[in-house]
Each structure stands twice: as structure tokens, then as C-alpha cells.
Computed example of a mutant assay.
Amino acid sequence: MKPALTVAALCLALSSPAAAQNAGQIASVQRGASCPGCNLFQAPLSGLERSGLNLSGARLRQADLSLTVMNRTRFANADLRDVEAYGGVFSSSNFSGANLTNASFVGAYLDGSAFSGATLTGANFSGASLERATGLTQARLNQACGDEATRLPRGLSIPRC
């Protein structure tokens, strides 16, 4: 290969996403299938109504989960960084060990969900209901934010956004 072509090929390779989404896996979840460990990067799942899915260990980074109903869904150890979950309903879901860095759960319903070991750095829970959530600690909530409408388990508080 000529040097100019080698440089052009290298530039093209570096500008492409390293691990782009998997359209087939996204379509499978949209149809209601569980997909543990799947690559659902930037998945358009807004408005989806599916309960009891297993998305443990899945890469959902930057996915749109706004206005979804995903009760009893397993997100354990999933990558949920930068997720938009505005108004989503996730009652009794499992977020244990999940990375929710900079995720937006504004107005979400998360009662009964498990958060043991979850990373909440920069997560926005303004207006969210977490009253019966488990596994939340004050130290972890201090890394997130909410507002006066955020509902938390008794004895816990959250910094204002």
C-alpha cells in the first residue's frame, strides 16, 4: 500500500466507532426479547413497553429509554452511561452494579428497584420516585442529583441539580 493510502485508511479506521451498535440485537429487544450482554449502544427504545427483560451486562450507553415501561427488568452490571430515561417506569428492576454515570431519570418511576453497587455519578433523578428502592446509600446519592420532587427512601437525601 502507498503511504498516502495507508494514512487515509488509518484515519478512516480511527474516525469509525470502535464498537457501534448491533442493529439486530436492538431489533430483538424492541420485539420483547431478552438480550444479556448485548451491544445496544444508542438504541432507540423510547416508548417501549416490555417487562421482565434480562439486559444484564448489556451496553445501553446513550440509549433512549424515555417513556419506556420496563418493570422487573434486569440491568445488573449494564452500561447505562448517558442514558435518557425521562418519564420511564422501571419498578422492581435490578440496577445492581450498573453504571448510570450522567444518566437522566428525570420523572422516572423506580420504586422497588435495586441499586446495590450501582455507579450514580452525575445521574439526574429530578422528580423521580425511588421511595421503595433498595441498595441506595447516602454516599452514592451524594454523587447524583435531584430536586424537591425526588422521592427517596426514608433517611436519605440527594443534592439539588
Rank of each mutant, 00 (worst) to 15 (best):
F90D: 06
F90G: 10
F90K: 02
S91C: 14
S92E: 15
S93A: 15
S93Y: 09
S93L: 07
N94L: 13
F95W: 07
S96K: 00
G97R: 00
G97M: 03
N99I: 05
N99H: 08
L100S: 03
T101F: 13
N102L: 12
A103G: 11
F105C: 05
V106L: 07
A108S: 13
A108N: 04
A108W: 02
Y109T: 03
L110W: 04
L110S: 04
D111I: 00
D111L: 05
G112H: 03
G112A: 05
G112E: 05
F115C: 06
S116M: 08
S116T: 10
S116P: 10
T119K: 08
T121P: 09
G122I: 00
A123V: 00
A123M: 02
F125K: 00
F125H: 02
S126I: 00
A128H: 06
S129M: 12
E131S: 15
E131D: 15
R132W: 15
A133H: 08
A133Q: 07
T134H: 14
T134N: 14
T134P: 15
L136H: 04
Q138C: 11
A139S: 14
L141P: 06
L141R: 00
N142V: 01
N142H: 03
N142C: 07
Q143T: 10
Q143R: 12
Q143V: 03
A144S: 12
A144G: 10
C145Q: 05
G146W: 02
E148C: 05
E148R: 07
T150Q: 04
R151V: 11
R151S: 10
L152K: 02
L152N: 08
L152D: 10
P153G: 00
R154T: 14
R154N: 15
